[in-house]
Amino acid sequence: MPKKSFLIKKLFENVEKMEIDTEMCGDVEDHLGMSWKIRLLRKDQKLKVYLDCLEKIDNPESLISTGGKFKFNGKEQIFFHDFTKIENSKLAILEYWSQNSNYLKNGSAEIEFLVEIDTEKSIGIKIGKEKSRIFDDDVAKEVSDVVLTIAQRKFYVSKLTLASQSTYFKTLFLGKFVESEKSIIELKDIDPHEFQIFLEFLYGESVLNGCLSV
């Protein structure tokens, strides 16, 4: 398939109270094996929306060719953009809206990107598959009893599920560690994309390609 797509959205509240030159950020989300984030910037009397692709690349000729639909409080427009390498190995920031506060609804801004990646036009970037299970949506939050954070990403999971299938998490959650009493635990030296695959495997959503030891 030449194109792969995903949806990312965020509701920003109390936007009218933002100070000039300040910003609000959505959570970092994993889509198609890459990390993405929505940002809202107040610049003078205008609001600017950014979609950041946080994927690191080494080749300056690499790019991610995207297009799709953008919505700001229901107002829709089409966009096309090539993410390329810039400073700090980040891909270029995508900016698609610049309007004053009259576009707000009850002081809020609901922002949505339906992103399509053209895999044939993209160069030097491995485009993964869309995740089969989401660990940071409302359903996951309702049934979880612990939050695992990795590189700004949050995974809302069940201690029992992880402890029953991983000796590491059994020791972490049920052992005599300080973390066993915490509701939010930071995990270090783990790739968030690989951890997403690991969790999908534990929850019976997919088969691991390769191996992740946790």
Rank of each mutant, 00 (worst) to 15 (best):
I197K: 15
R153G: 00
L47Q: 07
G128L: 08
F135Y: 01
E29Y: 02
K90R: 13
I86M: 08
K176Y: 10
E205A: 13
E23V: 08
F72M: 09
G107D: 09
V157E: 00
D145H: 06
F83L: 07
E13M: 12
F177Y: 13
W36S: 00
F177Q: 08
L174C: 15
Q165I: 04
T149R: 05
T167V: 09
E194F: 11
A151S: 13
N88E: 03
P2H: 11
F80R: 14
N209I: 11
K129W: 07
L54V: 03
D58P: 00
S122E: 02
E200V: 00
D118I: 05
E87V: 04
G33P: 05
K182M: 13
L160P: 04
T22K: 11
I134A: 06
Q99R: 14
S89E: 11
V214P: 08
L94W: 10
M34R: 04
V49F: 08
Y156S: 10
S65Q: 08
P192R: 09
K129V: 06
K105R: 13
I185Q: 11
I190F: 10
L174R: 14
E61K: 15
L212N: 08
T119R: 12
F195I: 12
N88Y: 07
D27S: 06
K56W: 09
V147H: 08
S144L: 05
Y203A: 06
D145S: 02
I134T: 12
F173Q: 14
S98I: 09
G68F: 01
T161Q: 11
E142Y: 09
F169L: 02
I78H: 12
Y50M: 14
H81S: 03
S206H: 12
N100K: 10
G204S: 06
R42H: 11
S122Q: 03
G175D: 11
K4E: 05
E55Y: 06
F80E: 13
P192D: 09
Q77F: 07
Y168V: 07
G124I: 01
K43E: 10
D189N: 15
T149M: 01
K188E: 13
H31L: 00
L32W: 02
E205F: 14
V143H: 10
Q165R: 11
L148G: 01
L199H: 07
S98Y: 00
F169Q: 03
F83T: 00
K46Y: 13
G68H: 00
D137E: 02
K4P: 06
D27M: 04
K170G: 15
E200P: 00
L172P: 01
S166C: 11
K85W: 04
V115M: 04
S213H: 15
S206C: 08
K126Q: 14
F70K: 00
K37S: 01
S108F: 05
W97A: 14
E200T: 01
F155M: 05
K121N: 03
G26T: 02
M34L: 08
I117N: 02
K90C: 05
L7F: 03
E186A: 13
L63I: 08
K141Q: 09
Q196F: 08
L41V: 10
E194S: 15
R39V: 08
I117C: 01
V147E: 09
G67N: 09
Y168G: 00
W97Y: 07
Q99G: 14
S164K: 12
E61G: 05
C25R: 11
K131H: 06
K159Q: 06
E13H: 10
K9A: 05
D118N: 13
S5A: 11
